[in-house]
Write a protein that binds this DNA or RNA. Structure first.
Lengths: 200, 200
DNA sequence: TGTACATCAGTGAACGCGCGTTCACTGATGTAC
DNA sequence: TGTACATCAGTGAACGCGCGTTCACTGATGTAC
């Protein structure tokens, strides 16, 4: 039965939200379109009125999840006027590791994206650039411009790698899971300090 | 029909080899047991004479692939008496990114392992420790002992993260794919230099 | 060494199930008069 | 504003297919005598 434009837009949003959450939790290959539709309170047929295929949904859901996560991060950072070091401490932490379903989709799906279609790869690349720009902006003038981008890229990669590894080993080696996060935080901190020009 | 002990052991090895290669290429959820058996020249039923379940096979295949990759790396490193910097340059490179099927299983499956069973997590943790120990051993006395392990962990995480990100964006942003590798290499290099004690 | 037979690696059909996608249909919405 | 009707979001059965796993069976291997 037909539904109002507002309701249709709302349903589309619910599908994106459900897809985004489930893909992060169980992986893109680990979730079926029926699961997504059910969580959004619809049937699987309705999904195809909004998205041409699962792959197209995956790409949009990736962007949707990333934008939501970026908004949360910006709010968190804005409240404390976050420095680069604040970002590194906040993003590469046990809290972030345990927040899979609402956390960063790049981290949740890093090693799967290369096997998905081109649309998902594009969503990932855009998200990576946006995250990098945010971190780059948090670096002070003490770090010369070219090294700013380099450090920002390394921090984002460090977050993605550290959270993925920490999640991978937490079932069998919980203390290693925490050690990994700390090691990456400290190493990025050391590189940050090394690249800073101190003139007094 | 029954088969000689030697042939059975050989078939088991072929199953592990096929599983290991396919899991790296298409992901654990992206490969069926029939695909694996077919590549090993057997039928899917035979697989269950060697492994109790797909999950158990995945854990063994992970270790198998990792051991093979470690042997290759040790041979490569032994030939040139590799330093920490050599490892970083060699492991975080476009060559390694393009070598998915025979490359490091940790890198190929990083974000999927957390969703697999405990056996796979254990294989991952063991592999991570082994890789870390190898890199730690490559660091000279110029770096104090506690920082050696920290740098080694960061380098392994850096490799896993950098290759995963590079593979994720290569379809849509090839130049970013290379930039990421270089940025991580240089940042680990900077941290390495910063942690080295220079007494003259 | 030769024979009888238990073992078991491997086969292939079958199990129930969930997958992504399609499609004829429904009926409230939105529009044209 | 009231009525007639085209639109189309959503339903649910059905499509063909592949999934992981089980199992009765085969027949060469390995062993006991």
């Amino acid at each position: 039965m037909r539904v109002s434009k507002e309701k249709a837009a709302e349903n589309r949003g619910a599908l994106l939200q459900a897809a985004s959450r489930l893909f992060r939790k169980r992986g893109i290959d680990g979730v079926g379109v029926a699961d997504i539709a059910r969580e959004a309170g619809l049937t699987h047929g309705a999904l195809y009125a909004h998205f041409p295929s699962k792959d197209a949904l995956a790409a949009e859901a990736f962007t949707h999840g990333f934008e939501g996560n970026m908004a949360d991060t910006r709010e968190w950072a804005g409240g404390r006027d976050a420095s680069f070091q604040d970002y590194v401490e906040g993003l590469i932490s046990p809290d972030m590791r345990d927040k899979v379903e609402t956390g960063c989709p790049m981290t949740a799906s890093a090693s799967e994206v290369g096997r998905q279609g081109c649309a998902v790869s594009e969503s990932f690349a855009k998200a990576f650039e946006e995250m990098t720009a945010m971190l780059e902006g948090s670096l002070s003038d003490a770090v010369p411009a070219p090294e700013r981008r380099r450090l920002a890229i390394a921090a984002v990669v460090g977050q993605i790698g550290a959270l993925a590894v920490s999640r991978a080993v937490i079932k069998s080696a919980p203390s290693l899971a925490d050690e990994v996060l700390q090691a990456v935080r400290e190493t990025i901190g050391a590189a940050h300090r090394a690249e800073s020009v101190h003139r007094e």
